[in-house]
Design a protein around this nucleic acid. Structure first.
Length: 561
RNA sequence: GCGCCCAUAGCUCAAUUGGAUAGAGCGUCUGGCUACGGACCAGAAGGUUGGGGGUUCGAGUCCUCCUGGGCGUACCA
């Protein structure tokens, strides 16, 4: 075998091809710079494993014939023979590289050697990144959009870690401000109703039943004591109790969903004496981006592309949500992240430009802060939209969804679509544990492999010490499957760079399909020991990649179903 | 009104950041198990990528206008 497993990931294959093309450009005297070189995987396998359009790009720049340039580059290329089978000039001037069968089969050995670290890279080396997501207001249980954000955010965190980033997952808890006030008033009303008093529920309060439940748990004596302590003090007491209870729910629900945060950041800490709220305001004033109008302090965010200026401090002296948020990002900035990714709900996309403006003022680069928006989810049951109304207190929660369809199916469905597009969540389909459900299709492939490996062991076929038997893998279904496996590292990099975890669900389905095809045509355990061992290694390599893909999505890879 | 997002097969979604013949699943139709999990596999039908212009070797992807939906447009969060 020409390649030892350690140095033959498909990434290094790509980088070697890249290097060779760059050298060939120089050798052939083609100018235009090496940043013209982009490698991609052709959609059609007939066009090889890796394709490069550099001749087309150069042709435009140099006003020359692309196919002619492609020919020149090909002639100047120096690549090891056993690595790629050949280089073809195709179509309008693509250079198509096809991996040799030896190279492909050697990758099966590589994957077996690397195990779950296959696909890992260091493109995020020395990059400290924060991902802030969910961050739903603690005024009630987490709802469906928050569940989607949780699925997306946690998967993104996994992917970034896989690519070598140092990542911190954070939840911003808005435990201060007017909503907590409303929450306190709402709970207070519920408690008084429980005592039989005929009180009107606050018009802008939180009407959900959960506050009735919390009110029911308050010892009557305690509650009466609070009510007797004066309006303001009572509101605070009820408010902080509600907050405390709800935050516990939120944390429990997220845990049950299998979503973990490194940090829960309390907004209230920003408002403390000497906190970032006061500091940020001072900072902005010194920068000259604040002005006074009608008794309030305004941030000149229009200078930074926002559509209008924003209030920082109201005329009654209280800071706005925006000032707190700006202060929060000042805090993040000081923590030294190279990159901060905020995942916002659909109702917050208006904040993006002003928050970016706020960040730039305290010295962040334009691209320091990235804001992704997670769009709405519609729940569809039997073809009908499930009606939800937070205001009316009727809504599907993350907890009830997990209870209903399970966290694996929920996450998979949330991660099937691009995050900034609306999503129709088919509850009826997600509930099914049949072949119609894509989650089961993928998990089934994993379970099937585990079962075959166990069967093989019973039949006396074990994993070989010497991995050279992989050169027995020559059937089209075998090669097709390997081609899918080899793409994995590049897929992960792409998903990390584009912040698009949904690419993995598509991949998982394709890989599972490719395995099932192979399994159907190629008998794994047979009389031919070496062939059996080779196919066992291929099955195991597939299992490794499937398990890792599911793992990055936050979904379990069951050995039995 | 203005700003941002979305529109792709009957339905739900992809499409490698501008690439080659736009792909999967579900649904519909046809076929396939005496051996490793049939929760599977093979095949068929299904498209003017919402519409019109433009940019170039090349557009679902970029620019522009239009249509239809969502969100935002607070001294709420």
């Amino acid at each position: 075998m020409a390649y030892s497993p350690d140095e033959t990931t498909s990434l290094s294959a790509r980088s070697r091809i890249r290097t060779a093309i760059e050298a060939a450009l120089t050798k052939a005297g083609i100018e235009g710079g090496t940043d013209m070189v982009h490698l991609e995987r052709p959609a059609n396998p007939e066009n090889g494993d890796i394709s490069c359009n550099v001749a087309l790009v150069a042709a435009k720049k140099l006003r020359r014939n692309p196919r002619e340039l492609a020919g020149m580059i090909r002639d100047a290329l120096e690549l090891e023979k056993d690595f790629v089978d050949g280089v073809e000039v195709a179509g309008p001037g693509f250079l198509n590289f096809t991996f040799s069968r030896e190279y492909l089969s050697s990758q099966v050995a590589t994957i077996n050697t690397l195990g779950s670290s296959y696909g890992a890279s260091d493109i995020g080396k020395d990059r400290k990144v924060q991902v802030e997501y969910v961050s739903a207001n603690p005024t009630g249980p987490l709802v469906i959009v928050a569940a989607r954000a949780a699925a997306v955010g946690s998967s993104l965190v996994n992917i970034l870690r896989k690519t070598g980033h140092e990542v911190e997952a954070e939840y911003y808890l808005n435990d201060a401000g007017s909503q907590v006030r409303k929450l306190g008033l709402s709970l207070m009303a519920r408690f008084r109703q429980r005592l039989g008093e005929d009180v009107e529920f606050p018009e802008d309060g939180y009407p959900g039943d959960y506050l009735v439940d919390i009110a029911a748990e308050i010892p009557e004596e305690t509650g009466r004591e609070w009510l007797g302590s004066g309006d303001e003090s009572a509101r605070e007491a009820f408010g902080s109790l509600a907050l405390e209870k709800i935050i516990v729910w939120i944390r429990e629900d997220l845990e049950k969903f299998g979503v973990h945060f490194d940090t829960f950041f309390n907004e209230s800490t920003l408002h403390r004496e000497g906190g970032e709220v006061a500091e940020a305001l001072e900072f902005y004033k010194n920068k000259g981006v604040v002005y006074e109008k009608e008794g309030a302090s305004w941030f000149r965010s229009t200078d930074f592309g926002d559509e209008k200026d924003r209030v920082l401090v109201r005329s009654d002296g209280t800071p706005t949500y925006f000032l707190a948020d700006a202060a929060y990002h000042l805090n993040k900035f000081r923590r030294g992240y190279d990159h901060v990714i905020d995942i916002f709900g659909p109702d917050h996309h208006g904040h993006i430009s002003r928050l970016k403006a706020a960040s730039v003022v305290f010295g962040a680069n334009e691209d320091w802060l990235d804001v992704m928006t997670v769009q709405w989810v519609r729940l569809i049951e039997d073809g009908q939209q499930v009606k939800m109304s937070k205001r009316g207190g009727v809504f599907e929660t993350l907890a009830s969804l997990v209870e209903d369809v399970g966290s694996d199916a929920s996450k998979f469905f949330f991660l099937m679509r691009k995050t900034n597009a609306h999503l129709d969540f088919n509850l009826t389909l997600a509930r099914k544990s049949t072949d119609e459900n894509p989650v089961y299709y993928v998990q089934y492939a994993h379970a099937r492999i585990c079962s075959v490996i166990a069967f093989a062991a019973d039949e006396g076929v074990k994993f070989p010490e010497d991995l050279d038997c992989v050169d027995k893998l020559v059937e089209p279904e075998e090669i097709g499957l390997i081609r899918h496996l080899v793409v994995f590292p590049q897929l992960i990099e792409g998903a990390a760079e584009a912040c698009e975890p949904h690419r993995l669900t598509t991949y998982a389905q394709e890989l599972a399909a490719s395995f099932h095809r192979f399994y159907h045509i190629c008998r794994i355990v047979s009389n031919d020991t070496r062939l059996s061992q080779a196919r066992l290694l291929l099955a195991e390599a597939t299992r490794i990649v499937l398990a890792e893909t599911l793992n990055l999505l936050g979904i379990s890879a069951p050995e039995r179903m």
